[in-house]
Simulated assay, not measured.
Amino acid sequence: MTRSRRFVFWAVLRPTLTTACLLAVYFAVPLTRSFTGVTSVVLGCSLGALGVLVGWQAKAIVRSPTPLLRAVEALATSVTLFLVVFAGSYCLMENNAPGTFSEPLTHVDALYFTVTVFSSVGFGDIVPRSQPARILTTVQMFGDLVFLGLVGKILLDAMRRGVQRQGRDADPT
């Protein structure tokens, strides 16, 4: 296998395995506890950890021999983590207070709702009914905008710096 094929192979395999693991954990966790203040703190800490992960990924992109592939990998991992954190929160919220959403949320329903909010499609088949659910959905909407704008910019800038670094390293002058 050539070096470039090996990079592509790993750039596809790592985020695929990471996504599979994150989804496996999400579906394996019962998520039957109550959504409490502690849950809100855990949600905030999870989003903070995502921010740290993005920063670490940006540094890894700059140092990578294949910054474009590494940026795609970082984006795939970050999006999955972001979506799973909110889906878990919605599941906990619905299990804590049935009727919080227009229909009971299973793991699949919560993930589906999270993706429809993230993609701004909002089919309307599942809607938040309670004030806390609407607040959390609004937080996700703002988070989506920040994620798409800021995280996208950070990863794109890191990729650009990585490509420039490669150019400087390749230029013997």
Rank of each mutant, 00 (worst) to 15 (best):
L156S: 07
P172C: 09
D169V: 08
Q57M: 12
A110G: 00
A11S: 15
F142Q: 08
V52L: 13
V72P: 00
P15M: 07
A20G: 10
F35E: 04
N96T: 14
V38S: 11
R70M: 15
K153C: 10
M159S: 15
L156E: 01
N96A: 15
T137G: 02
P128A: 12
L43H: 08
G152I: 10
P30F: 14
Q140A: 06
R134M: 14
V79P: 02
A97V: 13
L105A: 03
M141H: 02
G143T: 05
H107L: 04
P132N: 09
L150Y: 15
A49Y: 13
E73P: 02
L68D: 12
A87M: 06
F147N: 05
A11L: 01
A110R: 01
A74M: 03
R70V: 00
V52M: 04
E94R: 10
L47R: 06
D125P: 00
P172V: 13
A28E: 07
A74V: 04
R161V: 02
N96K: 03
M159R: 14
R3H: 05
V54N: 10
V12F: 00
A158M: 07
L83R: 09
L31D: 04
A20M: 10
S46M: 09
A110H: 03
Y112F: 15
F27A: 05
T32E: 14
A97T: 15
C21N: 03
R160I: 08
F123H: 08
P67W: 08
Q57G: 00
E103C: 01
L145Y: 07
L75N: 13
T173C: 03
S89I: 01
V54S: 05
V79N: 08
F9P: 01
N95R: 15
P98D: 08
T16D: 05
M159T: 11
L43Q: 10
F27S: 02
T66C: 05
L156Q: 03
V54C: 08
Q140K: 08
T16Q: 06
D157V: 11
V62S: 05
S46F: 00
V84F: 07
Q140I: 04
W10L: 13
Q131T: 11
L136H: 07
L17I: 09
G162K: 06
V151N: 09
S102N: 09
A24W: 12
G44P: 06
C91S: 14
L150W: 15
P30K: 11
G122Y: 05
F142T: 11
I135H: 05
E73G: 02
F9Y: 06
P104W: 02
